[in-house]
Design a protein around this nucleic acid. Structure first.
Length: 935
RNA sequence: GGGCCUAUAGCUCAGCUUAGGUUAGAGCGCACGCCUGAUAAGCGUGAGGUCGGAGGUUCGAAUCCUCCUAGGCCCA
């Protein structure tokens, strides 16, 4: 007879092979068709809200691993918070305006800036953004992410655009907005500002000149006093520049406070230059080394002045870290209206942002000596003037990399233009923002420091962009007196227009058409107005999302419980959102900030095309399925950089299989188990089963806490470990005999199934936020009645299986002893080959007094370590034949003897038992005999 | 160059901050063996780190301090 047919072998429809790549779409379909996410929200209609506010990705290009990581983390939170009892409405968003899209659009249309009317560009940009929103939306969905995909927030939606303008006006109304000049790349040929991305660097020939700034009388006296040297000949501060035309705008001379400077004598003239440049200068100018007269501390020169080389004014000596010894003289000529660093240091020293150059690159008529001249032509004139004044020490030409306009290919200049700023100080925005951070929880905690120091040091926020794809800076100015209209009433009309038609009208209608009828200037009574041309920085767009989304949608609330983005957003969205919210509401828009690191390769290097180490989520989905990406996200500690490599993926796939197979076994052995009828109460279970359930409830506790603290890698490790240890290698292996061989409805079998049931029921729920596809797959294949149609509609398990501390200790000891015996058995099997399987072994144990209590129950140990015979004996007698004896290394005094059994094998359960051969059916053991008889 | 962060076995993580103290843990992988009634599965045993490097504090440090190196993010 083939006894196999009499066994209760596992039965399940749940396939061993996941086939994730092919099968995942069917689960996506199921979730969508059954509206599972909507049902999750409905089910928790009255539950406390948990608001995870989505930081909008830029609607440009496909998603990459970084965006995938971010959305999956958010999804894990949405699902886990929901299953922990919250209502979690998650509205995905997209950032739609801005230069990159505008540039891409121009590229696709084959045009350059200004060649098409604003509305044509705007329409094309809108289409472009929408295209990528659709693409990304599908890509996010494919990852198994739950969200209100049909009602996302888009920063280009009309209502959103109106919100942006409204928030800007709040700042304007409260006097936190001002206008000031700031240098930008400027193309005098195209008469337009350029963004950094619109600038191409190309070789360019420039004059290279060394210019002498004469000492003022005061400076001369100061130096004489300091050095005890009589300055009886002309003395100069020497600078180097490649843009002579910026000299008319010179207001200062910058020295590095860390460098040493020298007073030197060259051909009967005195100069101040950096010590570290002297020899290089000589080489360049073909001069002998100068006579070094004295060392000068630049810090002492701060605030002193030199004379302008050709104007009757003075130039302030200031200190700046940015001055280097790479080129020049170690002293930099500063024109705050014509350079980025010049501008910043100019602000610091309170210098005027002076721009003597008009939009077409000509000096204004009233500029002495060169008025009306084109700047590049003025270069030569300025050289002549310098020569004539004797203030040109040396002249040459150099070829260097210089910015050019990508449109006309002509060299561009740096030129300050009027820009709009949000003031950090006017209404104490900086102070308030810093203080508000105390109300925010940062995960990890160092995030606070990071945003704090950025906030502490940041300049006023320049919100102007000279572009068209965005929301206009809605400011009207009196055409006559220049008064800025600040009151909201002047903008009521335009906000209404934005809400209905978006911002387009601003670009085509006149100020008078956009203002309420009959508007007059409150200052001068004039009736004509100008409207601002600049648009808002896109960081302002996304920065006000709390107002446009959280406050606007009734299902949401402000402030959000959580913002979750990459650590770069400390300067980005976290930062801009904070300023927007504190500036208008006085509080941060979030209660907590969670940040993750960046995706790097196996060596910890960033992914880049040039390194060739880029991994695309699309490829991973094709090869492994989205589930493995989700598992990867959970397995790695995202607070640090997140590594990914072939090996990591291989490990994850293996771990995935182990988890899946463990579940498959649990399910396969519950085919005839009805929890309503067959569940055995915890108190009645055998102690081993109780112990496993106790371990299970520890895992439940730990995993739930890990979700609460966003430690998802702990979730993964715990679940995986539990599958491997407590389930696979302990109860599954040990109790398999009960499952297969005992009568179907026997206590032992039902007890084991009870443990399986609890493990399956809790783990499938606990893993669902991470292994969403697989959890749903398992849920749909549950062998018993489901409580809900989807696992996501259930709650996290709340089972508590308590065990007294004594019992826990007892079990830990038993497991320790078990390991010792297994070690001995392994020696018998592997080294001495006296047995093939442990089932064939007889085990004799001699134990120290304190351990005897654990070892007295032979029947238990025979079952627990699955051997033919077990006995605790007082003395181990070595016969030396076909046996091994070994001393435990770990437990002192424990001695173990192993020998093969003489018992015959029961053909049904394969256990060796003394009664086999002696019963009515000689092939069976007592237990199997009875099971068969009573079938 | 500045700010913040990270660095524990081949891989992913514990331990380190809320107390610094016996031979640094887990799982995977690997090697070897067993099983063939979870089978492109399962079980067992074993070998692998001196905790990025160098100093220092301490009776004693992976754990505290300093510096260095490598890497990441953000600036300049």
């Amino acid at each position: 007879m083939d006894w196999k047919d009499t066994l209760n072998l596992p039965k399940t429809s749940f396939p061993m092979k996941a086939n994730l790549v092919e099968r995942e779409p069917s689960f996506l379909e199921f979730w969508e068709k059954e509206k599972i996410y909507e049902k999750m929200l409905e089910k928790r209609a009255n539950a406390p809200l948990y608001i995870l506010h989505d930081g909008p990705p830029y609607a440009n290009g496909h998603i990459h691993l970084g965006t995938a990581l971010n959305k999956i983390l958010k999804d894990i939170i949405v699902k886990s918070k929901s299953m922990a009892g919250y209502k979690v409405p998650y509205i995905p968003g997209w950032d739609c305006h801005g230069l990159p899209i505008e540039l891409k659009t121009e590229q696709e249309l084959g045009v350059k800036r200004g060649e098409l009317p604003p509305l044509v560009i705007r329409e094309a940009c809108r289409k472009y953004a929408q295209r990528f929103i659709n693409i990304q939306k599908e890509e996010f969905k494919r990852l198994g992410v739950f969200a209100k995909w049909n009602e996302p927030y888009l920063t280009m939606n009309f209502e959103y655009e109106a919100s942006i303008a409204r928030e800007f006006l709040r700042f304007l109304e409260t006097d936190q907005i001002y206008q000031r000049k700031k240098p930008v790349f400027w193309c005098p040929n195209c008469v337009t500002a350029l963004a950094e991305a619109e600038v191409e660097y190309a070789p360019h020939k420039s004059p290279s000149i060394y210019v002498k700034f004469p000492f003022t009388e005061k400076l001369k006296i100061f130096i004489e006093e300091k050095t005890n040297i009589k300055i009886d000949k002309p003395g100069y501060v020497l600078i180097w520049t490649t843009t002579p035309w910026t000299l008319p705008a010179n207001l200062a001379l910058a020295m590095n406070p860390e460098f040493d400077y020298l007073l030197v004598e060259w051909d009967g003239e005195y100069y101040i230059v950096a010590e570290g440049r002297v020899s290089a200068l000589c080489a360049e100018m073909n001069r002998d080394l100068p006579k070094i007269l004295a060392k000068i501390d630049p810090k002492e020169l701060e605030g002193k002045k030199a004379k302008h080389p050709f104007y009757d004014r003075e130039s302030l000596i200031i200190l700046g870290d940015f001055v280097t010894l790479d080129t020049g003289t170690g002293i930099v000529h500063i024109a705050p209206g014509h350079g980025e660093e010049d501008y910043h240091i100019g602000l610091k020293y309170g210098l005027e942002i002076y721009v003597p150059v008009d939009q077409e690159g000509r000096f204004y008529e009233d500029v002495p000596l060169i008025g009306g001249l084109n700047i590049f032509k003025a270069n030569k004139v300025i050289l002549d003037i310098l020569k004539e004044k004797g203030h040109l020490l040396y002249q040459d030409t150099i070829e260097h990399s210089y910015p050019h306009c990508w449109r006309c290919k002509k060299p561009v200049i740096f030129r300050a233009e009027d820009q709009w700023f949000i003031s950090m100080e006017a209404k104490d925005l900086r102070k308030k923002a810093l203080k508000s951070l105390d109300q925010v929880k940062f995960i990890p905690s160092w995030g606070r420091n990071r945003i704090y120091s950025m906030l502490e040091n940041r300049p006023d926020w320049c919100i102007s962009r000279q572009r068209v794809w965005g929301v206009p800076i809605t400011v009207f100015k009196c055409a006559k007196c220049g008064e800025i209209l600040k009151d909201y009433k002047y903008y009521q009309k335009i906000i209404e227009i934005f809400e209905k038609e978006g911002c387009d009208p601003w670009f085509v209608k006149s100020a008078e058409e956009l203002l309420p009828e009959g508007t007059t200037c409150p200052k001068c009574g004039n009736t004509t107005f100008e409207k601002e041309k600049d648009i808002l920085d896109v960081w302002f767009d996304s920065g006000v999302s709390f107002a446009a989304v959280l406050e606007k949608r009734s299902e949401l609330s402000f402030p959000a419980d959580l913002y979750l983005e990459g650590s770069d957003q400390h300067r980005g969205w976290f930062h801009s959102s904070l300023l927007c919210s504190v500036g208008t509401r006085g509080v941060p828009p979030y209660k907590a900030i969670l940040t993750h690191g960046f995706v790097v390769d196996g060596q910890g290097r960033k992914m880049s095309k040039s390194l060739g180490n880029v991994i695309h989520p699309q490829d991973l989905i094709k090869q492994y399925g989205a589930e493995i990406i989700r598992l990867w996200v959970s397995a790695e500690d995202y607070k640090d950089d997140i590594k990914i490599s072939k090996e990591i993926l291989k490990r994850l796939v293996e771990a995935y299989r182990k988890i899946r197979n463990t579940f498959r076994f649990l399910m396969g052995n519950l085919y005839d188990f009805d929890p309503k009828k067959n569940l055995i109460p915890f108190e009645k279970l055998p102690e081993f089963e109780q112990y496993i359930l106790y371990r299970l409830s520890k895992v439940i506790e730990k995993v739930k806490k890990a979700y609460e603290e966003f430690d998802f890698h702990i979730v993964y490790h715990e679940i995986h470990r539990f599958c491997v240890v407590e389930l696979s290698s302990l109860i599954i292996d040990i109790n398999r005999d009960y499952l297969y061989c005992e009568a179907p409805d026997s206590f032992k079998r039902r007890a084991t199934q009870t443990v399986f049931y609890y493990a399956l029921d809790s783990l499938v729920k606990l893993m669902a936020p991470i292994l969403s596809f697989t959890a749903e797959d398992i849920w749909q294949n549950l062998p018993y009645e489901k409580e809900e149609i989807s696992v996501f509609l259930t709650d996290f398990p709340s089972y508590k299986f308590e065990l007294s501390a004594d019992k826990v200790k007892n079990w830990e000891k038993i497991l320790e002893i078990r390991e010792e015996i297994l070690r001995a058995l392994e020696i018998a099997r592997k080294d001495y080959k006296i047995i093939n399987t442990f089932l064939e072994a007889e085990v004799f144990v001699k134990a120290p007094e304190e351990l005897k209590g654990y070892l007295e129950n032979s029947a238990f140990w025979e079952y627990f370590i699955m051997v033919a015979k077990f006995s605790l004996i007082d003395e181990i007698i070595e016969t030396g034949e076909n046996e091994i004896v070994c001393d435990s290394e770990e437990i002192k005094g424990l001695k173990i003897k192993i020998k093969p059994t003489e018992y015959k094998k029961c053909e049904r359960c394969w256990q060796r038992k003394p009664e086999v051969g002696k019963l009515e059916n000689p092939e069976l053991c007592q237990r199997c005999y009875e099971v068969i008889k009573n079938r």
